[in-house]
Design a protein around this nucleic acid. Structure first.
Length: 578
RNA sequence: UGGCGAGUGGCGCAAUUGGCAGCGCAUCUGACUCUGGAUCAGAGGGUUCUAGGUUCAAAUCCUAGCUCGCCAGCCA
């Protein structure tokens, strides 16, 4: 197959080689074989066909990367097509968010933006054609009656009493359905296939239903709307898609996809099904998202704990990390659940290279350097990113009174704890070596202040005598620090599989009560005052964060924790310091 | 007890189509370190769903079975 890394139409797009590893996944194999055999005359046209009835989630990202990725690898195009055949659920707000999310992920459909509703007229004509061919009929059965006559998984269905209406009558009725003469639910247009088929999708499926609803694009022009199976294959056909890639649950629908296109005798793409992406500790359905949002369990579709694209974006995840995940998980046909840790790995790998380092103290405790001159301030040089020398250095103010992390001091240090404790010397990053001399407690016995001495010879953090310390801790000058709120996020659910519940419970019972911890008294180094919302930074030794794009205010930033750094100490502490 | 699909280390995927079962994540160990980060080195972990069969040779081919997923919307 062609492996050129050209971007499509010169549009910004991820490296086209992304996802095309040494061994091709089964979808790419099919594409490669088709290219070799000339099945589509060398064309490769894919499409991403979301229904605009909700926000995109990371599962969609897999489909997006697959479809746009394959197109890019073949110097071709991927269409963005809104599958807007159900006006009752679809809204313009969603079509806008979907476009924004696809772009944010780094893909571009160029001029290939389509809507299934663009094809309503053509679909209607095709339906008339099928009626004339005796392949479709108007049915007066109610939804309930259809359900009963459909049969079950093991028993065949019964023919509708309206199945043998004359072509003339069907034509007349269908035209009057369109004209709005009938009420919702009173009539449908159904394909005449086989009520005894073992595949229920072939038991005279509904092609059109009456819906007197306002459509976000066609307004009130239509009161009959095509069903997915009928609309989707025709849309693909009209757009001359070559490979119509969808998820596994549509496997049973492929015979119907093929049936319509065969009966219509029109251009016929190949439908290929792959397994959708699932992640541990997350649910992945729009219905559940809606419940989480409406139930107030999260702040919205873009809550940083949501697995939506907009949630991940607000949380601080990068498009690169999400694309990396999609290429690592591969494409196959068996249902699987990817470890959330894989996503975090992709994130850390990306951010480790790019995120500037800063110092922030989340749970402050005061440190007074008793031998440091009162009123003196120094500017310490700090490197912005040890992984990237070009990121340069910055000045960080240092003074007599500092804040350090409460976790970095223990009056009685447990085994393997080698940070600050009475009598022990540690390094203040880019600062000095300090030694704890005494602790100050309040009346309740809590340590409220730590008194230390500093060694002026160790300025910048180096010891001229070669003296070693076991730990380097971060700090912030009390006088210069800025205050901020920091939100620490954890998994929204406490179980790997949120749907793993006892009798009578639902996934909502698995909500993690500690998925959000808000810290309001955090002290950050001053350069963080004008952090750009959404831009990733690393708080040294703590994790990756970004200023929240929604709740941050000038001079009053709110930071989201995107992910922690890998923390060996946390592991030691958890296993009891063993 | 209908149809379709899928079973390979804990998880996600490979295996040039019959030729020594590999990779990533996770886990563990060691080295190094002004982030207990990063990096580097190494380790453990497999009855390839099961049972038969074909073959010099089977994850791969054949037979039978088992398990799991999806399908009975006028949703997509």
């Amino acid at each position: 197959m062609s492996s050129a890394n050209k971007e499509t139409d010169g549009k910004p797009g991820p490296d086209a080689s992304e996802g095309a590893g040494r061994s091709l996944d089964f979808v790419r194999k099919i594409v490669a074989e088709d290219n070799a055999s000339g099945k589509w005359d060398g064309r490769v046209v894919t499409r991403f066909p979301p229904e605009p009835n909700g926000y995109l989630h990371i599962g969609h990202a897999k489909s997006i990367c697959l479809n746009f990725g394959i197109a890019a690898e073949n110097n071709s195009v991927c269409h963005l097509r809104f599958d807007d055949t159900n006006p009752e659920k679809e809204e313009t707000e969603y079509v806008e968010s979907i476009q924004a999310d696809v772009h944010w992920l780094g893909w571009d459909w160029g001029k290939n933006l389509f809507y299934a509703s663009d094809y309503f007229e053509q679909m209607y004509e095709y339906a008339v054609q099928l009626i004339k061919a005796g392949k479709a009929f108007v049915c007066d059965l109610t939804a309930d009656q259809v359900r009963h006559s459909r049969g079950t998984l093991t028993t065949p269905g019964k023919d509708s009493p309206f199945r043998n209406r004359s072509i003339e009558e069907n034509l007349d009725l269908f035209q009057r359905m369109r004209a709005g003469e009938f009420d919702e639910g009173t009539k449908t247009l159904r394909a005449k296939i086989d009520m005894a088929s073992p595949n229920l999708n072939l038991r005279d499926p509904v092609m059109y239903r009456i819906l007197k609803a306002h459509h976000h694009r066609t307004g009130d022009k239509w009161c009959i709307y095509p069903m997915y199976d009928y609309a989707h294959c025709i849309s693909d056909s009209i757009e001359h898609i070559t490979h119509s890639i969808c998820t596994l649950e549509f496997e049973d629908h492929r015979p119907l996809y093929d049936w319509f296109l065969n009966e219509l005798d029109v251009y016929h793409p190949q439908q290929i099904e792959f397994a959708r992406l699932n992640l541990t500790y997350t649910v992945m359905s729009k219905r559940k998202f809606l419940e989480l949002v409406r139930g107030g369990h999260v702040s919205g579709w873009d809550d940083p704990r949501m697995p939506t694209i907009s949630g991940f974006r607000r949380r601080g995840y990068t498009p690169e990390s999400i694309r990396d995940l999609c290429s690592r998980v591969g494409v196959a046909k068996n249902d699987s659940v990817v470890d959330f840790a894989m996503l975090e790995h992709c994130l850390r790998e990306d951010l480790n290279k790019r995120a500037p380092r800063m110092m922030a103290v989340l749970r402050p405790i005061k440190v007074v350097l008793t031998n440091y001159p009162e009123g003196q301030t120094e500017e310490m040089d700090a490197v912005n990113n040890p992984e990237d020398p070009s990121a340069g250095t910055r000045k960080v103010p240092f003074s007599r009174v500092l804040y350090i992390e409460q976790d970095d001091f223990r009056e009685v240090p447990p085994p393997k704890f080698y940070r600050l404790s009475p009598g022990r010397e540690v390094r203040l990053r880019y600062g000095y070596f300090i030694t704890c001399q005494e602790v100050v407690k309040d009346s309740a016995g809590n340590v409220v202040e730590v008194h230390c001495t500093y060694d002026p010879a160790t300025r910048g953090g180096d010891s001229p005598d070669g003296r070693k310390v076991k730990a380097t801790i971060h700090w912030v000058s009390a006088e210069h620090a800025i205050n901020a709120e920091v939100r620490l996020y954890d998994h929204l659910f406490r179980k790997e599989d949120p749907d793993d519940v006892a009798e009578g419970q639902t996934y909502l019972d698995n909500l993690n009560p500690n998925s959000l911890e808000v810290l309001t008294d955090c002290r950050l180094e001053p350069s963080l005052a004008d952090a750009k919302p959404g831009a990733p930074v690393q708080f040294e030794r703590l994790g990756y964060f970004c200023a929240d794009p929604v709740d941050s205010r000038p001079g009053k930033p709110v930071f989201n924790r995107t992910a922690t750094l890998k923390d060996t100490w946390a592991k030691i502490a958890k296993t009891g310091g063993r």
